[in-house]
Design a protein around this nucleic acid. Structure first.
Lengths: 143, 143
DNA sequence: CCCTCATTGAGATTATATCTCAATCATAGT
DNA sequence: ACTATGATTGAGATATAATCTCAATGAGGG
């Protein structure tokens, strides 16, 4: 079992919940992809593999994964929410192409720093943030 | 008629469209509020005032307002999209309280600057962006 | 005055996500 | 091993925002 799956197992059990085969399937699916996933994609992949987890359980498990801190829910301004796992992905923000839909990632530690200052100034206790830049990627600008 | 409404009228007419009473009502409603509005709120306010604009027209006109650049559509991670008019509101980002729902605004020109650099590095042509910080406001932290 | 095309409204429709509830399953206590 | 308790699941119903459809209306140009 992957380290991340084990971490999720620990989280689940520490909460006094059960680490069921369904939860394991969903977790493995999310941890095995390095792209952005949405609930429907996860469901489909599981079905293709022959796993019969229900839609409700996929949504419920995604929530647990987010709670555990191992997965981040990201809203890219599209109609459905996306998820990405954290491990091996230092915090980053997103460049979303409005034409082809491609999502690039970028890191800018200074931006994070400035955000913290802004929160301090406002006596705001941050738990997370989301920065998306919308526009056109290199490829789509050329055309 | 307010300056902004006139600007919207110009935009509409330059596009060869009609500046109808319905479009005017929606525009005035949006320009008269200094809070975040959503489509349903706009619809309700108009109904209260006796204006009988339909839901479809409200959505359609909000799109036009965004297109015109006079209004910004913002996604605060809630279930519905919010709108705010630009005039008198220099670009700013949002602190969203997860407990009471309050939305504070903050400005940080340096963050904007850094975003531009990030775009340059990635050869990305930005048209807009959205930065939300989620957490707990001063009031809610105290409790 | 007519023709064309934009616009509107009411309700149907789409799509994501959540909820309900009966059936199943795991675990602890006896 | 047996039972009671509570967690979990799945199928489908439900909620909700937003978009779409299409007939009827209205505006403006020729």
């Amino acid at each position: 079992m992957k380290t991340e799956t084990l971490q999720f197992k620990s989280y689940i059990e520490e909460k006094g919940l059960l680490f069921t085969p369904e939860r394991q399937s969903v977790a493995e699916e999310v941890f095995s992809s390095h792209d952005h996933l949405d609930a429907e994609k996860v469901l489909k992949s599981l079905r293709v593999r022959g796993s019969k987890v229900s839609r409700a359980t996929v949504y419920r498990t995604l929530d647990l994964l987010v709670e555990s801190g191992l997965v981040e829910k990201i809203d890219l301004g599209e109609d459905r929410a996306a998820y990405e796992h954290i491990a091996g992905h230092p915090h980053h923000d997103h460049l979303v192409c409005l034409r082809c839909g491609k999502v690039q990632e970028f890191e800018e530690p200074l931006i994070e720093q400035l955000q913290e200052w802004a929160c301090e100034k406002a006596s705001f206790k941050a738990t997370g943030h989301s920065l998306n830049i919308y526009g056109y990627c290199e490829n789509c600008t050329a055309k």
